[in-house]
């Protein structure tokens, strides 16, 4: 079952909105990180079922963080979804090439965000038999 979500986003207001959507609407357990490096620090201890991450972040952007995350054995099989306004076909191809399972475009609708995340998670489970 999908329960623990690690959410990485540098913009505090969007953080609040998405966290409320995931916690209140979706009933998930959410750990919020404001940067790629914070995510890398917390991720092993928190042991999320799924990671939701912004692309444009200062210092270490989403794709760079993903590349680092993929080096951690403890995270094998944990799906990573990007949430971004940069969703041109070649950008999406690039995200998938480095191992993102899907992309949720911004602006997103917080009321349907949990459903979208669940659907992607279910699709992923089918593929990997989790």
């Amino acid at each position: 079952m999908l329960n623990k979500i690690l959410y990485v986003e540098d913009e505090p207001d969007i953080q609040t909105v998405a966290r409320m959507a995931l916690e209140v609407v979706g009933g998930f357990n959410v750990e919020v990180c404001s940067s790629g490096s914070e995510a890398l620090e917390k991720v092993v201890d928190y042991a999320p079922d799924l990671i939701l991450m912004d692309v444009m972040m200062p210092h270490m952007d989403g794709p760079a963080t993903l590349v680092e995350l993929r080096k951690l054995e403890a995270l094998d099989g944990v799906p990573v979804i990007f949430m971004t306004a940069k969703v041109q076909p070649d950008e999406v191809k690039e995200y998938k090439a480095i191992g993102a399972v899907d992309v949720i475009p911004k602006p997103f609708d917080p009321m349907s965000l949990p459903e979208t995340v669940k659907r992607i998670w279910a699709e992923q489970c089918e593929k990997t038999v989790c």
Partner: peptide, 9 residues
């Protein structure tokens, strides 16, 4: 994104 999101919530 945050305006629309807040209103939607």
């Amino acid at each position: 994104t945050s305006i629309n999101g807040s209103l939607s919530l």
